[in-house]
Write a protein that binds this DNA or RNA. Structure first.
Length: 443
RNA sequence: GGCGCGUUCGUCUAGUGGUUAGGACACGGCCCUCUCAAGGCCGGUGCACGGGUUCGACUCCCGUACGCGCUGCCA
């Protein structure tokens, strides 16, 4: 059927995947998955001077990371390719000929231009509503160039032709194209083609309302990958920029979004990107994700930090107790490295703070002796023996906990002490206690 | 300048003529606590402005201001 829903994401590989582009791709994806159609990825590489393969790779990588898969395009092929504009010259020539034969094209200093019919054009936008554009004045709406003197093609022309050729039913793109749309519609008409449905989505701005550009914090998807955000969290956040489930939910499964997503529910106003909220949502995802998923996302960061994770059981136990502390996966090595080596660093501030107290070393020694005599090495046993020792010594549990924490990890911040001790095991803990006592003086 | 779009807490948003204008992030305070977080509770801040329409406007209309976009042989 020709009523099939077909949408496209058409990036230009001139930089990296921008957060705004990713959101546009995501909205196309949500729409097409909701309707069971096809998403086409088309690479608009007509500007050969500015296009790079690395940029294209970054786009694929960013989309894949976000879980935005495409049905036709690079890597997957399709019947209506090629999916690179640089390879579609024959098609553009054919369409140009068609326009020339019908008398729509004239030459101007070597460039080819399309002669506007000079009428009103109504754009019926699925997000913005019905808009009447008056194109009758050549002074304010000049005839658009379709081909440069050097033979390269102009975006407006090839974009429309590809959308016709690729049978695109819905053009979902940034609002920066809204004012271009009547020009595009003129082209569709001159070619005898029915224009697709249009949906122009609001732009993403900085917190201060300025346009987000490449240098702004959080603008590139690559940053989120490097920082170790959970992709599902970033995707969730992006869904909420200009769209909402209308019921106050913030964390919402992507399947649910697909089910509820409608273009008509997209806001018309530009949205400011709030990295704080994205960060918070990411924390929510990490806190609530399964341990298996957590390990999956943490592993590459540990490998990169050269942490020996060959002992799977131990690694799993370690990650289980730091999971609730992690906000960004890039912080995993920092939170776990001392579990995997006896050569961990002692933070001088922490040592000073804790062992600066004259009684601290004695407390640690007492705890060492207490633990040496406990056979049962689990959470409950460790906690009760530590607490009863504190009572016996007439000190606060903190007076034992803090020295123990520094001894065993080299720092004053970390997961619950009892959990750390349990995971590390008796032998390792006693060894670390002894080594620390030797260092700070056991008396 | 012209044309287009927009305007609810600092930010993301709910709200479609009658609400104490709701939620979330961020922020402040308190509680919890072995550290750091998390969590719980409490708190402040908002309908850009001016005219209409109406018994009644955040909600509808007009204007102004402000913001953003387009106005390229960038995409």
């Amino acid at each position: 059927m020709s009523s099939e829903v077909r949408v496209r994401f058409a990036p230009s590989p001139t930089g990296y995947l921008h957060i705004g582009g990713a959101r546009t791709a995501l909205f196309n994806w949500l729409f097409v998955r909701h309707h069971g159609g096809k998403l086409v990825l088309r690479v608009e590489d007509t500007d050969t001077k500015r296009n790079t393969e690395e940029a294209a790779a970054a786009i694929y990588q960013g989309l894949e990371w976000l879980g935005i898969n495409w049905d036709e395009g690079p890597h997957v092929g399709g019947d209506l390719g090629p999916y690179f504009q640089s390879q579609r010259t024959d098609i553009y020539e054919r369409y140009l000929k068609k326009l020339q034969d019908a008398g729509h094209i004239f030459e101007d200093q070597g460039a080819l231009r399309f002669r506007s019919p000079r009428e009103h054009v109504i754009v019926n936008d699925l997000v913005c509503g019905k808009i009447d554009f008056d194109l009758t004045n050549p002074g304010t709406h000049p005839d658009m160039t379709v081909r440069r003197p050097d033979g390269s093609w102009i975006f407006h022309f090839v974009n429309v032709i590809d959308d016709i050729e690729m049978k695109i039913s819905h053009v979902i793109r940034g609002e920066d194209h809204l004012s271009n749309t009547p020009k595009h519609i003129e082209l569709y008409r001159a070619l005898g083609a029915t224009p697709p449905n249009f949906a122009h989505i609001p732009l993403i701005l900085n917190r201060d309302g300025s346009k987000m550009s490449k240098r702004d914090e959080g603008a590139a998807i690559a940053t989120y990958i490097e920082q170790g955000y959970a992709p599902e969290a970033v995707r969730n956040y992006l869904c909420l920029l200009g769209w909402s489930p209308k019921d106050n939910r913030e964390k919402i499964d992507i399947e649910e979004v697909v089910k509820l997503f409608e273009l008509e529910k997209i806001n018309r106003r530009n949205a400011a990107f709030d990295l704080d909220k994205c960060f918070w949502l990411n924390g929510q995802y990490i806190a609530q994700m399964s341990l298996d998923r957590f390990i999956e996302l943490a592993r590459p960061f540990m490998e990169r930090a050269k942490i020996d994770i060959s002992n799977q059981k131990y690694t799993r136990d370690v990650l289980a107790i730091v999971k609730e502390k992690i906000k960004l996966f890039k912080d995993v090595p920092e939170w776990t490295n001392y579990f995997f080596t006896e050569d961990y660093e002692f933070d001088s501030e922490s040592v000073k703070k804790v062992f600066g107290k004259p009684e601290a070393a004695g407390h640690l020694k007492a705890l060492r002796d207490e633990f040496a005599n406990t056979d049962k090495w689990d959470l409950a046993a460790l906690e009760s023996s530590l607490k009863s020792l504190a009572q016996k010594l007439g000190c606060k549990t903190g007076d034992l906990v803090h020295p123990a924490r520094v001894a065993v990890s080299g720092r004053s911040v970390g997961p619950s002490l009892y959990h750390m001790l349990e995971v590390m095991g008796k032998e390792r803990v006693l060894k670390r206690f002894d080594r620390t006592l030797a260092k700070v003086g056991s008396k």
